[in-house]
Structure formats: structure tokens, C-alpha cells
């Protein structure tokens, strides 16, 4: 694809729930092959921003372009991974079936999975080290395995754009390492990766770019920005506590109650 066209382009986007705006006047350009973490406080609009890009929310104003066209035009080339809390883990479905869902949109209504689809599913399961668990019901998986199944589903779709809501929240360090290695590899071959996260260390070390979001875009730039005290102060406001010796500590609630609330509306 033409590298001059941004993979994702938001111009002056405002969106929210009921009468509360979650994001206001957000403008953002993400290039193909970028690996971007969106961080910020609870209720700062991380999930909302991701949903606007995914076409799951209609912005109140502004314009969202994905792969050079209006949202939804290239939906089959976008894979969205919801937060773990938004998934019904008691649903009677196996790991393999979930990953096959990644192939569903491209197959079309009358298409049936063929050899290529089954190969793509095994391939994706192999990349997240879960081949052996293909027949398991998803409720029987650990937290880290649950995140990996959904990543495998996204991989199986072979998308241009990965949109991941909290892909590394609540997972063990080994799983986080695996997930980030895969996302890094996907970005390296030109796929655009956008993930929300609460994990600032992960954002700083494993992503190329970061967006600090607190209702509006506070900063957008290289990953080291998350270590910039001025950016952190503007993003988190009163949740920063100064330490003796000049440092600060962030009191952030990793259970993102706002994210869960947004999901129900």
C-alpha cells in the first residue's frame, strides 16, 4: 500500500456516552508499521478512541479515516481484540473455534472454512504456543492464555491493522513478553498496531510510539515520552505523588472501572 497514506487518521474527533464526552477534539495520525501504545487515566478515553477507530462507536463530530477510507470500508482488514472483561468466558466455544472466527469475515456469508483457513488457524495457534489447547473450552484457560487466544484470532485474520484493548493487562511477564514479540514482528512487516495499556513500563520498553490521552491528546511521540514528568503530570494530574529525591509515583487503578462501565453502554 502507499506509505504516504496514514494507516489511521483522526481529525478533530469527539465521542462519548450519554451526555459525557470521553474524548474531545482528538487529532491523530498513525503511519503504517507503527507500534503505538495509548496510555492515560481511567475515563481518559482510551477504549473510546480505539472503538472509534474500529467503527464500534459513531463519533459525535470529526472524521476518522482507516487505510485511506471512511471507517468500515476496510473492516475486513482490521482486527479488534476486546478487553478480557468484555468476553463471556463461560461461552461454549473452543480455542480453535475462536481463532477460526478471525477467518469468518473474509469467507463471506456462504463461504465455508477450507484448507487454507484451517492452516491459518494452526499457524496462528502455533505463534502463540497454544496448538495443544485448540480443543479446550475458553473458560478453562488461564488469564494469559485467554489473551493469547484472542491475539491468535487477530493473527488468523491477517489484518493490516491490529486494535487491542488492554492486551497485556493482568498477564504474567512471560506471556507479556510473547505477546509483545508478536506485535513487534507484525509492526516490523508493515502492520499497524495500536494498543491501550495501563502498563507504563511496557509502553516505554516495548512500543515505538505512545499517545498520552486524558480526554484529549496530551502528547504523541516516541515511547520515552511516558518517562517525561511534564507529560505524566498533564496526563494523570492529581494521581501523581511526588517522591523525596525528585521522582514521582503514579497511583493508577489497574482495574479500569471506567473501561468496564463503557463496555455496557
Amino acid at each position: 500500500m502507499n506509505s504516504e497514506i496514514n494507516a489511521i487518521e483522526l481529525i478533530d474527533v469527539t465521542a462519548g456516552y450519554g451526555d459525557r464526552a470521553a474524548i474531545s477534539s482528538v487529532s491523530l495520525s498513525l503511519a503504517p508499521g507503527s507500534l503505538t501504545a495509548i496510555f492515560g487515566p481511567n475515563g481518559g478515553g482510551k477504549s473510546t478512541l480505539l472503538k472509534c477507530i474500529a467503527g464500534l462507536m459513531q463519533p459525535w463530530g470529526g472524521n476518522v479515516q482507516v487505510l485511506g477510507a471512511a471507517v468500515g470500508m476496510h473492516a475486513k482488514r482490521v482486527a479488534y481484540v476486546p478487553q478480557a472483561e468484555q468476553v463471556d468466558w463461560s461461552f461454549p466455544v473452543s480455542v480453535g473455534e475462536v481463532v477460526m472466527m478471525g477467518r469468518t469475515p473474509a469467507l463471506g456469508p456462504l463461504g465455508r472454512p477450507g484448507a487454507a483457513d484451517h492452516a491459518a488457524v494452526s499457524d496462528a495457534l502455533g505463534r502463540v504456543d497454544m496448538i495443544d489447547l485448540a480443543q479446550r473450552q475458553i473458560g478453562e484457560l488461564s488469564g494469559g492464555q485467554r489473551r493469547r487466544v484472542f491475539l491468535a484470532r487477530a493473527i488468523a485474520a491477517d489484518p493490516e491493522i491490529y486494535l487491542l484493548d488492554e492486551p497485556v493487562t493482568g498477564v504474567d511477564p512471560t506471556t507479556q513478553e510473547k505477546i509483545m514479540n508478536i506485535l513487534d514482528a507484525e509492526a516490523a512487516r508493515g502492520r499497524t498496531v495500536v494498543a491501550t495499556t495501563h502498563d507504563l513500563a511496557c509502553a516505554a520498553q516495548r512500543f515505538h510510539d505512545v499517545v498520552a490521552l486524558a480526554g484529549r491528546v496530551v502528547a504523541h511521540g516516541p515511547a520515552q515520552l511516558v518517562l517525561d514528568q511534564a507529560v505524566l503530570e498533564k496526563t494523570y494530574g492529581g494521581h501523581l505523588v511526588p517522591l523525596a529525591g525528585g521522582g514521582v509515583v503514579l497511583l493508577d487503578d489497574p482495574h479500569h472501572s471506567h473501561g468496564a462501565h463503557e463496555g455496557h453502554e
Partner: peptide, 22 residues
């Protein structure tokens, strides 16, 4: 028979299915 895989995807994960264009 006709819409099984679409119904399965959209019932299980309406957000993921919607983002993928279903």
C-alpha cells in the same frame, strides 16, 4: 446452516465481529 459462523462470532464477541465488518 447458512449463517452459523456469522451468528457464532457475533453472539460470542459482538465488538470483534462488528470491527471486522460483520
Amino acid at each position: 446452516r447458512l449463517l452459523w459462523k456469522e451468528l457464532l462470532f457475533s453472539t460470542f464477541d459482538p465488538l470483534g465481529a462488528g470491527a471486522a465488518g460483520l
